[in-house]
Amino acid sequence: MEALSLPSQVLRLLLRGQGPRSGQAMGESLGCSRAAVGKAVARLREQGFVIQARCNQGYTLLNEPPEVLPARVEARLEPGSLGLPLYHFDEIDSTNLAARRQAESGAPHGACLVAEHQSAGRGRLDRRWQAPKGSCLLFSIVLRPDLRLDQVFGLTNLAALAVCRAVEAMSPLQPLIKWPNDVFLAGRKLAGILTEFTSRAEKVEFVVVGVGLNVNLTPAQLDKLPAPAASLKAASGQTWDRAALLARILSEAGKLYGLAASGGWPELAGEYQARSLLAGKLVSVRDGEAERRGVAQGVDESGALLLEESPGRVSVIRHGDVSVLSYGDS
C-alpha cells in the first residue's frame, strides 16, 4: 500500500473522534511537525471539511463534504486495500475509459478512479448508462495481474464479491451475484460490473474493472430508470456515505485479491456459489437464437457458469443472457 498523503493521515486521526486532537500529538504520531499538521488541516478545509480548532485543545472534525474525495476514502482504507493512488473527478466521460488511459500511461496496480458523474457512462456493448450526479458510486480499478487470458474473468467475480461483502458489513442487506457481471438486491439490479483488458502475446497487460453501484437513488429516481433497479437507500431507508462504502469495497477487494493471488480461487468459487442468485435455480441461457435450459451450478475456476442441462451432464457457459425461469418445466 502506498503511503497516504498527510491530509489523509490527519483525517484518519480526526475520524477516530474522542474529543479534540492537538496538532502536537498528531504530529508526534505521524512523525511530522505541528506546523505540517496545521497545513494539512488547511488543505482539508479547502476541500470543504469543517474542522474546528480550539486553543490549547486541538482540532475536531465537525463535518465532511459529501463527495467521494480521495482523503475521505484513504482515511478509511485498511492495510492491504486496493485503491491507491485514488483519483477523484467531479465529472468524466467514463471511469473505465479514464482508467484505460491512466493504465496506458503507467498507472500502477490498484489505482482507482472515482467520479461523481459520468457524461458517457458505458455498459457492455457501449450501452449508455446515466445516473443523477452524486447518487451512485462509479469507480474503476486498474489491475496488473499475473494471469492468463482465460483467468481474467475471475476478476469480475472478485469485484462482485467485494461489493456483496461491503454492503453486508455495513447493513443487514444481502445482495446476490447474478452471473456473470451483475449484483442484485431483492430481485432487482443493484450494481453492474464492466471488465475490460488489454493483452499482448496472450499475457494480460492490464485489466480495468469498472463498477456502477446504485447507492442513494430514491424510489422515485429508480422508477425513472428503463429497467427495474434497486438502490441501497431505497432498500435500507437510509442515505449511505459513498466514501465509506468505497473504502470498504476497496478493502474487501484487497483481501479477495490477496486470496486469489495466493491460489485461493477454489475458496473464492465456494463463496461465489454461496452468494449466487442463480445457483440451484432453473435458468434459461439465451444466445441469439439459441436457448439452453438447465439448473445453474456454481462457477468453474475460470469464472464460467456451470449449467446442468440434464442429470449429470454439465456444460460450461461463457456467454449469453441468463434469466431465472420462475416456473420450472424441466
Binding site: R124, F153, P180, N181, T195, E196, T198, R200, A304
Partner: peptide
C-alpha cells in the same frame, strides 16, 4: 503488429484480439 483483428466476448467481457 497490435492491430485488432477481431473482438471476442465471453462472460460479458469484450476481449480485443490483436495481431502479434
Amino acid at each position: 503488429e497490435d492491430d485488432e483483428v477481431a473482438v471476442l466476448e465471453a462472460m460479458k467481457m469484450e476481449m480485443p484480439i490483436l495481431s502479434e
